[in-house]
């Protein structure tokens, strides 16, 4: 049970950190200043959430583990982030849609966790949920703007949807540690899909052709796409090159 709780906490932490690391690449490169600031604010929230979760995981793990050793010294196969988080930034449409799909999922997930009997996870979820509400609204507005915008922006969002959708199935498939904790991510799917679908439809996008598409799985149990290795190389560079370095 303790191991399952640790693994689950790492899954939550890794997903937030990896998406945060992905988004952080936009810092200084956003299409306009206000949106650059928005995506980096969201990034800060995600990394902040991951810090709270890693601190808890370190406590569960015991020994010499700290939030830093968990983030900087675990290898690819030890990372449990969902595959969606590690998808490439692509263009602005892909980054936005990835954020939207993920934030809508986080909203359902954290809502469920606020009722969790583990009080630390419930507290982190309660705090994070306030932030996620902003992320959902901001990314949702951009999905509308791009989908129902110009022919070019529409095409780009359609491509992003085709690229990302096959990585959403995993979110609702229980990993061993979720089963051990009695958590059922499948129960989150109905609300998530309803929210996502209604925004996509308003943005003039259809999920019809993707209804039965192949869904990738693996991230939650440590089997990742090629992308994660490159992300970790960047993320962990300082600690790998200068072990134990500190500010």
């Amino acid at each position: 049970m303790q191991q399952a709780l640790l693994d689950y906490t790492l899954y939550l932490a890794d997903s937030a950190l990896i998406l945060g690391q992905r988004n952080s690449a936009w810092c200084g490169h956003g299409p306009v200043l206000e949106q650059d600031i928005a995506i980096t604010n969201i990034t800060l929230d995600l990394i902040g959430q991951s810090r709270s979760l890693y601190q808890y995981a370190a406590q569960l793990n015991g020994g010499d583990a700290t939030e830093d050793t968990l983030a900087y010294l675990r290898s690819e196969r030890e990372y449990k982030n969902c595959l969606l988080a590690e998808r490439p930034n692509g263009d602005w449409a892909q980054t936005i849609l990835r954020q939207f799909l993920f934030s809508c999922f986080q909203r359902e997930l954290y809502t469920q966790l606020t009722k969790e009997k583990d009080t630390t996870l419930a507290a982190i979820a309660t705090k994070s949920l306030k932030e996620v509400t902003y992320h959902c609204r901001w990314s949702g507005e951009w999905v509308l703007r791009l989908g129902d915008g110009t022919a070019e922006s529409h095409t780009r969002l359609v491509t992003a949807l085709e690229n990302l959708w096959p990585y959403t199935g995993e979110l609702f498939k229980a990993a061993d540690y979720e089963l051990a904790m009695g958590l059922d991510p499948a129960a989150l799917q109905t609300n998530w899909l309803a929210a996502v679908q209604s925004t996509l439809e308003e943005a003039t996008l259809s999920l019809a052709s993707l209804a039965s598409c192949f869904m990738h799985v693996g991230g939650k149990k440590g089997v990742h796409t090629e992308e994660l290795g490159y992300i970790l190389t960047d993320l962990q560079y300082m600690q790998r090159a200068y072990p134990g370095c500190d500010w």
Binding site: E34, Q35, A38, E131, Y134
Partner: peptide, 13 residues
């Protein structure tokens, strides 16, 4: 409202 996100996490612009 220019943006729901501002120069720090707690502010809108």
């Amino acid at each position: 409202l220019l943006s729901e996100f501002g120069s720090t996490s707690c502010k809108a612009l």
